[in-house]
């Protein structure tokens, strides 16, 4: 009877964890898929990224606020008027905004330009980072108070998953994704212009922003292609291209936190 109860409890936990992950994957993948499909047609596709940005912001804000409040509760006397001003909201909001400012454009660019194989790998990385973050949070929860276990668990989980995901991503960029041979015979401005020409030319701020990403990516690829004979150059380029794993994993864990707190309601 007792064993059956434990099994039921375990199964319930697994189901809940799977539901969190599915919801978080939906919040992450659906806006990016719509953005990828609709951007060639219209700049309004950028609206699809708003819910994702909101989820990432809240997913960063709440754990940061919880930890900041715990710190302030220890640091400020209950009767002090400082407590009215120092609520921890500003610091948490700044941290969350930084998370969105870095994470959302990187995810949008990766979602738009990455090949299917890379996108599949990034989705798998999301699942892994979510699982590791939940496990790390639970493990740390035995020793730390909840606000600290939450923030540290998320950081450790996403960091560990990104490190694991880095290996196949470096491999893909190094050995699988083809580099157009033409780039070796072009000058840098010519190569950048050719890539920017592949983006829809609507002359909007979004074009300009994406043009900046395109220019940066192409400049790195061009430089690596010029010295392609040296293995370390290709490896450094592949490693740099794989760093998207850290942003993806951290953003997904933030989205997961958002869906864990609000997804059931």
């Amino acid at each position: 009877m007792h064993a059956q109860g434990v099994r039921r409890l375990y199964a319930g936990r697994m189901t809940r964890m799977a539901l969190w992950l599915v919801r978080a994957l939906l919040v992450m993948a659906v806006p990016l898929a719509l953005w990828r499909l609709a951007y060639p047609l219209t700049d309004w596709a950028a609206l699809a990224l708003i819910p994702l940005g909101a989820a990432i912001w809240l997913g960063f804000y709440r754990p940061l606020l919880g930890r900041r409040r715990a710190e302030l509760a220890v640091a400020i006397r209950p009767e002090s008027r400082l407590g009215f001003w120092l609520t921890g909201r500003l610091g948490a909001a700044l941290g969350a905004t930084a998370g969105v400012v870095i994470g959302l454009p990187v995810l949008a660019w990766a979602g738009l330009r990455s090949q299917g194989l890379v996108l599949g790998l990034l989705l798998a990385l999301c699942v892994l980072s979510g699982l590791l973050a939940i496990m790390a949070e639970r493990g740390l929860g035995r020793s730390l108070t909840a606000p600290y276990a939450r923030v540290m668990g998320q950081r450790i989980g996403s960091g560990a998953a990104a490190m694991i995901g880095l290996i196949p991503l470096v491999w893909l960029n190094w050995a699988v994704i083809p580099v157009p041979h033409g780039i070796t015979g072009m000058g840098l401005p010519e190569a950048v212009s050719a890539v920017i020409a592949q983006l829809p030319a609507r002359g909007t701020w979004l074009d300009e922003a994406l043009g900046g990403f395109a220019a940066l990516d192409t400049a790195k690829l061009w430089l690596a292609a010029q010295y392609r004979g040296a293995a370390w150059v290709g490896l450094v380029f592949s490693l740099d291209a794989a760093l998207v794993a850290f942003v993806t994993a951290r953003s997904f864990v933030a989205v997961l936190d958002f869906t864990r707190q609000d997804g059931a309601t």
Partner: peptide, 14 residues
């Protein structure tokens, strides 16, 4: 070959 794409691995190995 100048019309073909390459991977960094191939370029380094070549």
């Amino acid at each position: 070959e100048a019309t073909e794409d390459f991977t960094f691995r191939e370029a380094a190995g070549a």
